[in-house]
Nucleic acid binder design. Structure first.
Ligand SMILES: [Zn+2]
Ligand SMILES: [Zn+2]
Length: 302
DNA sequence: GAGCTCGGACCTTCAATGCA
DNA sequence: GCATTGAAGGTCCGAGCTCG
């Protein structure tokens, strides 16, 4: 297989392992500040076998379009993706749901109660004879909790919020005025029937949103439109089907490390409600069995 | 081949809990 | 009061699929 330019998470191998981004490598976020004196700019690239995926950095709030499409967004408004697809006029922040309060929890396990004494292995890492941690390159932040006190100061940790992000040189600058894209055309086609128009703030063009999506979590669509939407979503459902017609999860992804906790927890929190996929702008409204809506309905901020 | 769909891995936030 | 825990609620990766 040809070497892919990107690591599994879309970042180049050894992301933020280079002092300066080469041509074509730009930061998804503003350039990092220069490292303080005494720090090497970035850790040297680890041996290929030691490459672990860097922590994925998320934006605080994806725009409605990216959230619906489950695609990477950025802090800018309009965001990169909306600009690319010519839907900048509908690029806006959604509304974050407030966290539920008053939920009782069981007793906590005290992980840190037996504080790990110095010179004790931590997550498989062991300080050397001087009580010093081995130089970076033997370790990354993958799997090491943020802010681990014994993180050796030899190299500046990846600046918070900064990831080098590869764009082909010809895309390193924002496209000026993209022509109407396929996405845009499909988008219009898809939402032409069951769409409502949200009142737009002055100066911001309104954007059609699928009605059932604007309804809220899991839509609970009702009426013929909803049924049609559900039916359509069934047809759209991916996932292979066994001979007896049972749906088979399409997921064949290799299990990513350190996910068991979430998976188990989410499985137990499944509310068992049927998964209903509704036609949406450029995303969907299906559940992922977590109880939380994975591709949440998008509500435009006003 | 570019773009779309969507399951689920991964990340961030913050209320609940526990200890000093 | 503060540190820790862990779940809620979010982002977005990436395989499989569709469409021009
Ligand atoms: Zn966006
Ligand atoms: Zn956007």
């Amino acid at each position: 297989m040809a070497a892919t330019p990107n690591a599994p998470n879309g970042l180049p191998p050894g992301a933020y392992m280079m002092p300066f981004p080469p041509p074509g490598l730009v930061y998804a976020y503003p350039p990092p500040p220069p490292p303080p004196a005494g720090y090497a700019p970035f850790p040297p690239p680890p041996a290929p076998s030691a490459v672990t995926r860097p922590k994925r950095k998320q934006v605080k709030m994806a725009c409605t379009n990216c959230a619906a499409a489950c695609k990477r967004c950025d802090e800018a408004r309009p965001c990169e993706r909306c600009l690319k697809y010519g839907i900048a006029d509908s690029c806006m922040d959604g509304v974050r749901k407030e966290r539920k309060k008053g939920i009782k929890r069981g007793p906590y396990k005290r992980k840190n109660k037996l504080a790990q004494p110095d010179n004790q292995p931590y997550n498989g890492y062991t300080p050397n004879g001087d009580g010093q941690w081995p130089p970076s390159g033997d370790q990354t932040n993958g799997g090491v909790p943020n802010g681990h006190p014994a993180m050796p100061p030899q190299f500046m940790p990846p600046p918070e919020g900064y990831y080098p992000y590869y764009y082909p040189p010809h895309l390193a600058t924002r496209p000026a005025a993209p022509r109407p894209t396929l996405e845009r055309r499909r988008l219009a086609k898809r939402t032409a029937a069951a769409a409502i128009v949200l009142p737009a703030p002055s100066g911001i063009p309104s954007y059609p949103y699928a009605a059932e999506n604007a309804e809220g979590k899991n839509g609970a669509p009702s009426g013929t439109n909803a049924e049609a939407a559900a039916e359509q979503s069934k047809k759209k459902k991916r996932g292979r089907v066994t001979e007896d017609g049972a749906a088979v999860s399409k997921t064949k992804k290799a299990k990513r490390p350190a996910a068991s906790v979430d998976a188990a927890a989410k499985e137990s929190s499944d509310d068992g409600s049927p998964v209903v996929s509704a036609a949406t702008i450029n995303g969907n409204g299906t559940g992922n069995g977590t109880g939380a809506d994975p591709h949440p309905p998008v509500v435009a901020a006003v």
